[in-house]
Design a binder for these strands. Structure first.
Lengths: 193, 193
DNA sequence: CGATTTTTTGAATCATATCAACGTACGTGG
DNA sequence: CCACGTACGTTGATATGATTCAAAAAATCG
């Protein structure tokens, strides 16, 4: 329980046993079966989830029913709709499990309280948010400046075994492509090397 | 001096005079002429800039010489290459002024120190980073799920007078389009309404 | 094993990029 | 302050690349 979370925390901000016990009081565990929702469109997001095991996706659905995956989270990563969490407005996204998953949850209110109580947690929250921003900025850079082949290559580098774990049409959705196009991109890549 | 920064700060985290004086010690002012660099590719980014007045862009240049604008910052927004700032690695981006600009600067080291000294500043830094993340996530959502017309419309909503202030080819670059395509998108939009 | 979902392939269509030319606005030096 | 040269935006023709729709092949699940 919490192994990965604690390990992750300690790597960024080393904790004493005492500090960890305080923090742990604010955390809860949750298991999600594959295809189960963590958040549904229209609900207010009150949680931040850390993935101990498994994989999540955050996506929206356009009028015509197409799913657009905005974000994946695998082991060691956080997932939330930060906008809904902060604003208190209903989310336009869904979050669900791509695989059976184990999550460490903290509510927004618990997190706010804990940030006041624990300088270490405060620092951790700051670092994690910064890192999430950096990751997104990197992806935005790829999207506006790289070819599909390069973007696919980069995705594989960033999420080494995502291809084995996630159906290809979801990867296409994440890249903003149709499944057919991604299939052809992959074919092009395997031919030319 | 610092008017907008202070105002912005107070809106998120109200400050006493005393607290503000402490924080102000860590800030510096800088004016940039149009086209002047704040950061050049290959240099390590050590600063976070707040735009008091004017507009900045962050962009990279691909081998063939094309500029790709990743981010704009106008009055009331922050600008930095967070990755380079955090990692200490040389930046792959340039930051320069689109208009004559006035900036409030803080170095990474000053900011770290100040975050330890001032809980209010700590909170402000956290909120700003969160907000920057939210903004990027929203843009990522648009990029993967909306039409060019919708994205252009959204850009105008987010940056109301950007069209008047920023040359059109830069907006095209920001959207990941050629200038010709953006010109045609605009034409389509003006015809159909 | 059979049923369903996912991936691949093909052909036609649509959207964007590219290349070239033109008119206009802009700023820069004389 | 004017004139020139450079930037910028628009338009057209063509080429390239992605989507769409349909169908078959492959993989997955119960």
């Amino acid at each position: 329980m919490y192994e990965r979370y604690l390990h992750h925390f300690n790597e960024k901000v080393p904790l004493t046993q005492e500090e960890w016990e305080l923090i742990q009081n604010y955390l809860t565990l949750k298991k999600l079966r594959k295809r189960q929702y963590l958040l549904q469109e229209g609900d207010v997001c009150k949680l931040v989830a850390f993935v101990e095991k498994g994989a999540l996706r955050l996506y929206n659905v356009s009028e015509n029913g197409t799913e657009h995956i905005v974000l994946f989270a695998v082991e060691g990563q956080f997932m939330t709709d930060l906008y809904s969490t902060f604003s208190g407005e209903p989310s336009i996204y869904n979050i669900d499990a791509i695989e059976d998953s184990e999550l460490v949850l903290i509510t927004r209110t618990a997190s706010d309280e804990l940030r006041k109580l624990s300088p270490k947690y405060q620092e951790f929250a700051f670092l994690e948010t910064s890192e999430a921003y950096i990751q997104l900025a990197k992806r935005m850079t790829s999207v506006i400046s790289l070819s599909l082949e390069q973007r696919y290559q980069e995705l594989i580098t960033n999420y080494p075994n995502i291809v084995q774990r996630v159906p290809q049409h979801m990867i296409a959705s994440y890249m903003g492509l149709t499944p057919e196009t991604l299939s052809r991109v992959r074919k092009r890549m395997s031919n030319t090397k």
